[in-house]
Design a protein around this nucleic acid. Structure first.
Lengths: 200, 200
DNA sequence: TTTTAAATTGAATACTCATTCAATAAAATA
DNA sequence: TATTTTATTGAATGAGTATTCAATTTAAAA
């Protein structure tokens, strides 16, 4: 029980940090502001997170956890059905769930830190490897994928998904947004059925 | 002449801002620090860029200009040769020129701002559209591409390139870095020669 | 040369920042 | 219950922040 109150507080602080960053941007979210937001003196925040760097590391940990969660529904479904229709995967990857569950502004602000912090870079890499491994497992469980290089396939599919999310975030116009999504979905479907072509 | 000195100073300030951000991160680069770096009082910086927001907007303008420059060699070569081998394009897209000419940390820090600033979002979108249009033009000038939907193709190729740069930035291990690059190059080559498959 | 405008300086502003500290309150352990 | 550990508070620190302003130097226009 003693440990419970401290972890709950930590969680509360991280979530407050995340929510404020969502609104004002990570770079404009100070410890004092988090304190005001949560009705808590800044010194209490520093009690649980001794330095700002530690606080940010914890935020990133939290964000990457959340990010991984988005993929969980598919993984769950796989365990039950043992053989998922591939179109469900594609549609899920391109559904806007990611954006809704998740703030891309904070995500990319944190992402930008990988270029100056090896630890953060490593955390990000591990997350992205996990996502690819999950997809590979799902593909391996599909009979249509027999004989395919599913490691490569998972890499190639995710590179489209990640490129798409990067690029689509700039597109406001709904019509062209939808058209581009169609392009990218088609691209992934082509990847999935490409084995006819392997001779080349 | 009178106007020249002011534009030169502005350029100097922006470049100082960019270079410091490269080292310390955008969020840690203050006007005072830029001033110290350039041996110039902060008030002079504020004379040319009345607010920090304006300074940041100008930095982004500068960055996007640089980004566009990377593609210029290809466009130049096109104008001369009128018919470029497609492999040159692919190799150029995946060459590490981009990273060398350019700091991804600053780029993504700025990118993260598109989620809270419509103007910046718009600037980024326009840049990315330009890149796609350049590629489309190059493809259109290639006889192998006759009858192909080069608009879609340019979108699909760039989504791979952008996804790749996003993802590869996390990869330190050289062997796996190279393997992934191979995957993505192959993916683009497949896109380029895919027309055999159009029946499906 | 005189006048006018732009460039540059340095000091001062009020504010926010992360962090420290000693004191108190609450809870867990003995 | 008494004691020890943990949680919480509020005030204070000094350094850093963007921005303002009046004064001065430099250069262009007349």
């Amino acid at each position: 029980m003693k440990v419970k109150i401290s972890t709950a507080r930590k969680q509360e602080i991280i979530e407050g940090f995340y929510n404020l960053s969502k609104m004002n941007g990570l770079e404009n979210t100070s410890i004092a502001k988090i304190g005001k937001h949560l009705d808590m003196p800044p010194s209490l925040i520093m009690h649980y997170f001794p330095t700002r760097d530690i606080l940010i590391s914890s935020l990133i940990e939290y964000i990457l956890e959340q990010y991984l969660l988005i993929f969980e529904p598919i993984t769950k479904e796989l365990e039950e059905k043992k053989d998922i229709d591939l179109s469900i995967i594609v549609e899920t990857l391109f559904s806007r769930n990611w954006n809704l569950l998740f703030d891309d502004g904070v995500f990319y602000s944190c992402y930008a830190m990988i270029f100056r912090n090896e630890q953060i870079k490593n955390d990000y890499r591990i997350l992205h490897e996990k996502l690819r491994e999950s997809l590979k497992e799902i593909l391996d469980n599909n009979r249509e994928m027999e004989g395919r290089d599913t490691t490569m396939l998972a890499e190639q599919i995710f590179v489209v998904v990640e490129g798409a999310y990067y690029y689509l975030s700039m597109i406001v116009d709904e019509a062209s947004y939808n058209q581009k999504v169609d392009y990218f979905k088609k691209q992934v479907y082509d990847l999935l059925r490409k084995n006819d072509l392997r001779v080349l």
